[in-house]
Each structure stands twice: as C-alpha cells, then as structure tokens.
Amino acid sequence: MKHFKSFFKDVWNYVKVWRELSSIVVGFILWMKSHILLRWIDPTSATYDAGIFQIILFAVIALFVLHGVVRILMKLIWPTTDNYLDNEFATDFKTLESWQKLKLTTSIFFAFLFAAVLLARVL
C-alpha cells in the first residue's frame, strides 16, 4: 500500500510539472467516448479510427524537422541571430516588462499552435 501511494504521489508531482499532459489525456478520452455523442445525434454516423492520430503525429514530426532546418539555416546564413538566441536571449527576456513578456510568450505559443494546425491540415 505504501508503494502504491508513493507511485501516485510521484505521478501527481510529474503531472503538476507537465500540466500539458492533461490536455492530451482529455483529448484521448473525448475521442474514445465521442462515438456515444455522435451516435446519439445521428445513429447512422461513422466515427474516426485511430489512424486519425497519424496526422497529428506527422504534424509534430514535421514541426520538429522544420525547427531544426530553420535553426541550421539561421546558423549558416545569419550566425549572429543563432548566437543571440543561444547566449543572450534569456538575459534580455528577464529585463522585459511583464506585459512585454506576456505579449512575446503568447505570440510564440500561438505561432507554434498555428504552425502545428497548418501542418496537420497540409499533410
């Protein structure tokens, strides 16, 4: 029993740090139970199979590959920007006002989100 509690405490601490995992779990649960709602609305409706997740997986893979390609191109074409991102960006970010940090952070988040959705629609 003690080992059981320790396991769940470790899992809970992990989930507290990686809160984003909860949205993935909720998404999978909704997908697993979506057939109930779909069939209630339309008894003749078909549901997606598990292959639909390949689109998301390929979009994530493409995002990582393109991120690597862009960083390599930055290093080759304009090495000053690559050096800035690696060595000075964190220091400069800490000196920003809170509203500037918020604006920059949400812009980057939505840029990544938009890129992932765009890649998922293109693939």
Rank of each mutant, 00 (worst) to 15 (best):
Thr47Gln: 06
Lys33Trp: 09
Trp18His: 13
His35Tyr: 09
Phe64Leu: 15
Tyr48Leu: 11
Leu85Ala: 05
Asn83Tyr: 13
Pro79Lys: 03
Trp31Asp: 00
Gly68Val: 05
Trp40Asp: 00
Leu30Met: 03
Ile41Arg: 03
Phe89Gln: 11
Tyr84Gln: 05
Phe89Lys: 05
Val26Phe: 09
Phe89Cys: 04
Trp31Pro: 01
Arg19Gln: 11
Trp18Ser: 09
Asp86Val: 15
Leu73Val: 14
Glu20Trp: 13
Ile56Val: 13
Arg19Ser: 07
Phe53Val: 00
Ile52Gly: 10
Met32Gly: 07
Gly68Gln: 07
Leu63Arg: 12
Arg71Phe: 15
Ile77Asp: 06
Gln54Tyr: 11
Ala46Met: 08
Ala59Glu: 04
Asp42Gly: 04
Ile55Trp: 13
Leu73Thr: 07
Gln54Cys: 14
Val25Asp: 07
Arg19Tyr: 10
Ile77Ser: 15
Leu76Pro: 08
Pro43Val: 06
Asn87Lys: 10
Gly27Glu: 02
Ser22Lys: 00
Leu57Val: 11
Asp86Arg: 15
Ala90Val: 02
Asp86Asn: 12
Tyr84Trp: 12
Asp49Leu: 08
Pro43Ser: 03
Val60Glu: 05
Trp40Thr: 06
Asn83Phe: 15
Ala59Trp: 09
Tyr84Arg: 00
Arg19Asp: 10
Ala90Pro: 05
Leu63Trp: 15
Val65Ser: 04
His67Val: 13
Val60Ala: 15
Leu73Pro: 05
Asn13Tyr: 10
Ile72Trp: 03
Leu21Pro: 03
Trp18Lys: 07
Asp82Ser: 10
Phe89Gly: 09
Ile29Gln: 02
Lys75Phe: 06
Phe89His: 13
Leu85Met: 14
Gln54Glu: 14
Ile36Ser: 02
Ser23Gln: 03
Arg39Asp: 01
Thr81Leu: 15
Asn13His: 06
Val17Asp: 08
Trp18Phe: 11
Leu85Pro: 07
Trp78Gln: 08
Arg19His: 02
Leu37His: 03
Thr81Tyr: 11
Ile77Arg: 12
Lys75Cys: 08
Ser23Tyr: 03
Val26Asp: 03
Thr47Tyr: 02
Ser23Leu: 07
Leu63Ile: 10
Met32Ala: 10
Phe58Tyr: 15
Phe64Asn: 12
Met74Phe: 14
Ile72Gly: 08
Met32Tyr: 10
Asn87Trp: 01
Lys33Asn: 07
Glu88Cys: 02
Trp78Met: 11
Ser23Thr: 05
Val17Leu: 00
His35Arg: 03
Asp42Asn: 02
Ala90Glu: 15
Glu20Ile: 06
Gln54Ser: 13
Ile61Asp: 11
Ser34Asn: 04
Thr80Leu: 06
Thr44Phe: 07
Met74Ala: 05
Trp31Arg: 01
Ala90Trp: 04
Ile77Tyr: 07
Val25Lys: 06
Val69Thr: 06
Glu20Asn: 03
Tyr14Ala: 10
Ile72Phe: 13
Ser22Asp: 04
Ile72Lys: 04
Ser34Phe: 04
Arg71Val: 13
Val15Asn: 00
Trp31Cys: 00
Thr47Ala: 09
Ala90Cys: 01
Ile56Gly: 06
Tyr84Ser: 05
Val17Trp: 04
Ile24Val: 11
Val70Thr: 14
Leu76Asn: 07
Ile29Glu: 02
Val15Tyr: 02
Ile61Tyr: 07
Phe28Ser: 00
Asn13Leu: 12
Val17Asn: 01
Ile29Trp: 02
Arg39Tyr: 09
Leu76Ala: 12
Leu38Asp: 00
Thr80Gly: 14
Trp31Gly: 02
Phe89Ser: 10
Ala50Met: 09
Ala50Cys: 07
Val26Cys: 03
Arg39Ala: 05
Lys16Ile: 05
